[in-house]
Design a protein around this nucleic acid. Structure first.
Lengths: 180, 180
DNA sequence: GTCTATAAAGTGATAGAC
DNA sequence: GTCTATCACTTTATAGAC
């Protein structure tokens, strides 16, 4: 039994998934509403009707799910950070990749990413000791960003290794950055 | 005394500089030929006439100057890598930033960056020992990319510190990655 | 509810006047 | 050599037919 409301919800979900994939692959400007509609087996007019504008569609598709709170002893912080990074390397976080790819040409996407990263970074910096705590947490963010982008988006040489192998290399770096 | 050839050379140089700035600031798609022409105090028709197409203009503006060869003992390699990174953090490499920003939405730019990074990475990997040499050199590349992008493009929190402070943190990481 | 047709605006590229 | 005028095309967004 499919009510109209249910049917609509499914169509919206299909559109959102298609939008995430395409924004992640081609960025904001090169992804057209028509492309999204086609991949979702729908049409452009309907996409506009449901989401209002391409901008709003992007905002919903590229909303980055917040990581859990980071807290505890330095060792615990390091472990939570490495676990979060490991997950981001192993899977392909579609919404985050869409936001990451788009952020370089779409200022609103840049704000979204900066907001998500700053929130986590502040938590970390507050719990680190040393007067270079802010810079150290910044380098942690840059390393994380660099690894995720290099692996999933740029597909840089050497980063197609198994997540475990990469973490065996990057994990100690993060520990070092946390302890100072 | 300004010959016509000389005058033309100067106009081309103005256009290239304007193109580098704008491509670096807005990316490929959002930078229009008209914008470049206006900033260079010229006009769109002339830009097309000199460079043939927007694509060719970008290729010339975003050509990444190759870093010097990397070689020597592990300690020397580490020193050359940190010196190159330090330079990239201190200055704003306009052509490289244009290529970096554009690479996420413009496949040709992605190839340009990947080519430049792979060349350096291969050199490094060949001289590292250990069976994870390729992955380690990949992480070096990802860290470098992450730091440059986070500082100059994303303007991430904590990365506006003085280059010396950042290098005091990142330098040891690179040494560690080189020695294994 | 879904889709077709079209409007309005802006793009890269070109032809040709001065 | 330089610049104006315009072409052909594509985009988002909307109005209205079924």
């Amino acid at each position: 039994m499919t009510t109209r409301a249910e049917q609509r919800r499914r169509t919206e979900e299909r559109i959102l998934r298609a939008a995430r994939e395409l924004f992640g692959e081609y960025g904001f400007d090169r992804t057209t509403v028509r492309m999204v509609a086609t991949r979702a087996s729908s049409d452009a007019g309907l996409v506009m009707r449901y989401f209002g504008s391409k901008e709003q569609l992007f905002a919903q598709a590229a909303a980055i799910p917040a990581d859990g709170a980071i807290e505890g002893s330095p060792a615990e912080i390091a472990e939570q950070l490495t676990a979060a990074l490991s997950a981001k390397l192993a899977e392909e976080p579609a919404a985050a990749l869409a936001a990451l790819r788009a952020m370089f040409s779409h200022p609103e996407a840049a704000d979204e990413v900066r907001k998500a990263m700053t929130a986590q970074q502040r938590q970390v910096a507050d719990q680190l000791s040393g007067d270079d705590a802010l810079a150290r947490s910044g380098v942690i963010g840059a390393l994380t960003l660099g690894l995720v982008v290099s692996r999933h988006l740029v597909k840089l040489d050497g980063l197609d290794a198994a997540p475990e192998e990469l973490m065996a290399i990057a994990g100690p770096l993060i520990e070092e950055l946390v302890t100072g």
